[in-house]
């Protein structure tokens, strides 16, 4: 007993005063569209289809092509960074990425592609459909304000994950991050919860359980999708015989936390976004 006390006193406080603002050696890829020539090196290298290119309007002299990069499906494998012959893809050290919709996690640019050389010339970044981050933040706040602002009880639901996200979610409770100091608690039942923290590409076999868990959660409730799979189906795809895909295929999702898996800071950040305490950011 004495030993335990001495050791604890000697250890002191491990909890980091400011868990945010840290930088990782690899957050998400950032595309400099002005250097991109709309070749297919990155789309072929990407294992999840997070980077896509599609011809929109084939015209006689040129082809208008859209190139888009979505963090919703990105597993942070860095394959695109090494594959790009134009060095147009770099690395963002920012890890606290969250959004209120899938669209907000994507960025699309249009290119005029010369049909003879296959080389594209950058035209412009396309406007993302749907609400802006600020408008979506205001909307979420308006819905939960006064009810969930100061504490959040969270029921975690693994709806098909590989358990990587669970490892990092569990890490948010360790002495370094200590999520309870933000008023966030993991609870044992959806009936005690304000928020569902859902991982996985929702599987066919978890769909019913996920819906029932949602129905058992009292209003107002928020749903937070975690990880590349939770945001988009990730590597497992959407609409296969076994995987339905992103959580938003089954439930209305309020906050998306991309990453494979997202780091503990990113998960904490996303939960604070769901509480309306922080606003979601997507730096790129």
């Amino acid at each position: 007993m004495l030993g335990i006390l001495t050791k604890s006193l000697r250890t002191g406080t491990l909890t980091e005063a400011g868990p945010f603002g840290g930088q990782a050696s690899f957050g998400f890829p950032v595309m400099d569209f002005t250097r991109c020539v709309a070749c297919d090196a990155c789309t072929r290298a990407c294992p999840t289809g997070a980077i896509r290119a599609e011809a929109v309007t084939p015209v006689l002299a040129h082809v208008l092509t859209h190139v888009s990069l979505s963090y919703a499906a990105c597993i942070q494998c860095r394959a695109c960074v090494t594959a790009c012959p134009e060095q147009a893809i770099s690395v963002s050290p920012d890890i606290e990425v969250a959004a209120y919709s899938r669209d907000q996690l994507a960025r699309t640019a249009s290119f005029d592609v010369n049909p003879v050389t296959g080389r594209g010339t950058y035209r412009q970044v396309e406007l993302a459909p749907g609400l802006s981050l600020a408008d979506a933040a205001a909307q979420l706040k308006a819905r939960i304000l006064g009810r969930l602002g100061r504490s959040l009880h969270v029921r975690q639901v693994d709806a098909g994950s590989c358990n990587g996200c669970e490892l990092e979610i569990a890490a948010t409770a360790n002495p370094y991050y200590d999520l309870e100091r933000f008023g966030i608690h993991f609870v044992a039942s959806p009936r005690h919860a304000d928020a569902l923290l859902v991982t996985g590409p929702v599987t066919r076999n978890m769909e019913v359980a996920l819906r029932k868990t949602y129905e058992a959660t009292p209003e107002p409730r928020v749903v937070v999708a975690v990880g590349a799979c939770g945001c988009s189906g990730g590597l497992f795809g959407e609409g296969t015989y076994a995987a339905i895909g992103g959580v938003d295929r089954v439930l209305p999702v309020d906050v998306y936390i991309p990453g494979c898996p997202p780091r503990p800071q990113a998960i904490l950040n996303g939960l604070l976004v769901a509480m309306g305490v922080r606003e979601a950011r997507v730096n790129r």
Partner: peptide, 24 residues
């Protein structure tokens, strides 16, 4: 409950990409 169809998924992947799926 978390059957994701991984073995079937492998059959559609280029073998170089298989390692990402294996990690998951």
């Amino acid at each position: 409950y978390v059957h994701k169809g991984i073995e079937k998924r492998f059959e559609r992947l280029p073998w170089r990409h298989g390692v990402y799926l294996a990690e998951s």
